[in-house]
Design a protein around this nucleic acid. Sequence first.
DNA 1: AAAGATATCAACCGCATAAAC
DNA 2: TGTTTATGCGGTTGATATCTT
Length: 370
Amino acid sequence: MGRHACCFKQKLRKGLWSPEEDEKLLNHITKYGHGCWSSVPKLAGLQRCGKSCRLRWINYLRPDLKRGTFSQQEEDLIVELHAVLGNRWSRIATRLPGRTDNEIKNFWNSCVKKKLKQSGIDPDTHKPLNEADGGEDRAAGKGNKASESGEAKLAPPASGNPEHAVLQPIAPLMSMLERNQIGRAMAATEEPCLPRSVESSSLSNSMNYMALQHASRSSNCGILNQNMPLWFAQNCRLLDMIPELSYYNTPSTPSTSVELEPMPAGLPPDASLLPFQYFEACNTSNSSASSGNSSNGVELQSYSPFLDSGIFPWSELLPNKGAEIHVEGEPEDLKWSEYLNGTIRLTDTINKQSRCSHGISKGEKHTAIH
DNA sequence: AAAGATATCAACCGCATAAAC
DNA sequence: TGTTTATGCGGTTGATATCTT
């Protein structure tokens, strides 16, 4: 279809919106809501197509828009979400209240991409550039189905050996990990949204890779410092809380594409909203780990490639394997130790996210109406 | 100060898909 | 069930602003 039917009508204005048009649209929607977009221009007295009105409202006139420059936290979040979701800007935008998909897309294309490249990271694959140039870059190139559909490809260094890891600055990712933002960002993900076919070992290696880089940096000499075991445990644990990442059920097959398991029967409809309930404690060898650890009658998956990739005795790093999660505290104040000790109440996190993404009122209406 | 290069961002285009008929 | 209409999304374009030479 492409162009909306109303766009074929004559005398429809195109291009930048005038202040008068903005006012008309704003007044109309404020009074009556938008209803059917195709009827909005007529009702509002505008010579625009409905599509154009919708876009103008969503990207500019909506009162809950944040505008302004992106904060470092937002930037970090975008990078990490892009690594998981790819170019699904609308999905990413749902994690950044007050930001539009268009805004994020522009920010990515004009700023973040460049920064990542300068840091030696391929913005498409989130891999080191020198690797992206290699054999695998065909996967990221044009004509690649996955690439075109916006699927992110997480593939860290081929070798999981820290000595072989190419240490590149990935400050945004690491700083976010350190601030627990992945967990919070992903906690409200509606459904497992990674492509069904993803290299699971790449995901795990990616995190290993990130961790190793962090380790290298934090020790200033490429040697793990004494805090690393905890750090590793924390982040690896966290990944299992992310439904997109925890949903793989083939922990040990290296470098093979795997099909995601379907949602287990009996899972509550919104179970994917409960990532923290949908994991157990990271010991893949213990297939009975789910027993006695099911929340809402759900048998929890046992999977953690991150912990069994062979670099570290991951499982040994995790205290309270299979700890039941319950809570007491505001998510913002969550500490890693709380994750590890199982003292987080997931619903708090989700409710918080929910509050953020709905009914956002900043009290500040943007003033950019020309 | 002027010209060209680069960055930014609003808006459009076309496709996919859901909903209505 | 097939067709038409409406909506949403991501890619792309073009105008404007800013920077560099």
